[in-house]
């Protein structure tokens, strides 16, 4: 009886304040959309780190025929130089740092190049004999790239040592900036949502002051008087959060999984499964935000 009475009050309120409730839903939706995007971006960064840091970390590029690097003054790398570099990489000095080494010859580099750019204009654009040979080194600790770099800085036959993580780190930096922007927008929008919920609750309480006045007079408990208002805010915010989750799922399904995944070869992007993990979090944030702001508002504007 009690709960059905409260529910009828709640839905009465939602109907009466339809435009305000709709604005709460929309503002919550937009703010949580940014929150969700920020979380998904971070999940993507985490996933990419796991993927890449496990793989080749440092590439020791060997001299091609016409390199201008000082260590390549003698022309294309010779077989003896290759053997000596391999011996160094697998030798005692670097044993503590190097985990795995493999040699990538021109044929393999060509195949990987074409795989990576399959379907684009770059596919097949570089002939096999122009590909560069390299040693791919996996480090024990990804941070110790500098040791390998210094070790080979003056070695004849080594054109350049490239820390591939550095390229990734740039990408991660961009994604972190994007996350920060999303978080900043989300914070502003969340503040808007909190203020809007407070205003909506005040209006709602004002339009029902007759009822609440009588309720106080006949001894209804505070929880009973305030619950419909709190639920009104919470339901609106939860709807907004669910909507944000649904839109994120659509974007990820069609945009990321459907389109971007086809473009980005090799590694996994965020999936609808990730959105399903994020959505309950968003709904939780929405409910807590609306609950807290409406309880505070009611404490200020509805006396006992």
């Amino acid at each position: 009886m009690k709960s059905s009475f409260i529910l009828s009050e709640v839905f009465g309120g939602l109907k009466r304040n339809f435009s305000m409730v709709l604005s709460v839903v929309l503002v919550t939706f937009v703010s949580l959309l940014f929150v969700g995007s920020a979380i998904l971006l971070q999940m993507q960064i985490g996933g990419m780190k796991d993927y890449w840091y496990d793989r080749v970390q440092v590439a020791v590029f060997l001299c091609p025929p016409d390199s201008e690097a000082p260590t390549c003054a003698e022309g294309e790398v010779t077989e003896e130089q290759k053997e000596s570099i391999r011996a160094d990489l697998e030798g005692q000095d670097l044993a503590a740092y190097v985990d795995e080494v493999h040699f990538e010859d021109k044929e393999m580099a060509h195949r990987l190049f074409n795989e990576q750019f399959a379907g684009t204009s770059l596919e097949g654009s570089v002939p096999q004999d122009q590909m560069q040979e390299s040693f791919r080194v996996k480090l024990v600790d990804a941070e110790q790239y500098e040791i390998i770099n210094e070790y080979f800085s003056a070695t004849a036959g080594v054109e350049e040592v490239v820390d591939q993580n550095k390229l990734l780190d740039q990408l991660f930096a961009i994604m972190n900036v994007a996350t920060a922007i999303a978080v900043a927008i989300a914070a502003i929008m969340l503040l808007c949502a909190v203020l809007l919920i407070a205003t909506t609750i005040r209006l709602s309480a004002f339009s029902r002051r007759r009822e609440t006045g009588i309720m106080r007079l006949v001894g209804a408990s505070n929880a009973f008087i305030q619950l419909p208002f709190v639920l009104e805010g919470v339901i609106a915010a939860a709807l907004g959060a669910a909507l944000a989750g649904a839109v994120l799922a659509l974007v990820v399904h069609f945009g990321v999984a459907g389109w971007l995944q086809a473009q980005a070869a090799g590694f996994e992007l965020v999936s609808v499964g990730d959105v399903l993990i994020v959505t309950p979090l968003l709904i939780g944030i929405g409910i807590i935000m609306a609950g807290v702001s409406s309880v505070i508002t009611l404490r200020r504007y509805m006396k006992v």
Binding site: M1, K2, R210, E211, G213, I214
Partner: peptide, 28 residues
């Protein structure tokens, strides 16, 4: 408590106005 201005709910009939006082304190 009763007041000079009655304080009834205009959108509820006589029965529901009285029943309201019982509903909100959780009577069956």
């Amino acid at each position: 408590t009763v007041f000079q201005d009655f304080r009834l709910l205009p959108n509820k009939n006589v029965f529901d106005n009285v029943a309201f006082a019982l509903h909100v304190i959780g009577k069956s």
